[in-house]
Amino acid sequence: MSTPEADHSRDPCPIVILNDFGGAYAMGVIGGSIWHGIKGFRNSPYGERRIGALAAIKARAPVVGGNFGVWGGLFSFYDCSIKAIRKREDAWNAIMAGFCVGGSLAVRGGRKHMLNSAITCAIFLGILEGVGMMFQRYMAYANKPVPMPVPDQGGATPLGA
């Protein structure tokens, strides 16, 4: 993490995997609570709507959280491993990590399924990285340094001219 573009708001590599597991899990549980709460509420008969929402949240929100958590944690794990092997940080790390995650999650579906899933994940991560880069470039363009205004004094030659 000594490259100048390293993100200092995150912890160093092996321990950050736990952080990502927890963050992704929490995101999944909270998002899943909202999603399945609304879904359970709408799909229940009148009079049982609140209890239906609660039952749906209880049954499904932790599962959504688990899916998110495993995805995020595995991604972080592969990202750290690839960083340690390649000793550099660029967009290819994320794409390769996405490829590995897709393959790992589909490991019980057979070789073809694994490859398909891995490629889908890698493309998804590639799009994500590309959008991030475009955004970064746009921000750099919008905040580019402005040349100093030339003082408007006729006759006086500027220094160094």
Binding site: I17, L18, N19, D20, F21, G22, G23, A26, G69
Partner: peptide, 13 residues
């Protein structure tokens, strides 16, 4: 947020 992520992640794993 750090407490939340680390606590949840450790317990989950």
């Amino acid at each position: 947020t750090d407490d939340l992520c680390y606590g949840t992640g450790t317990l989950y794993v």
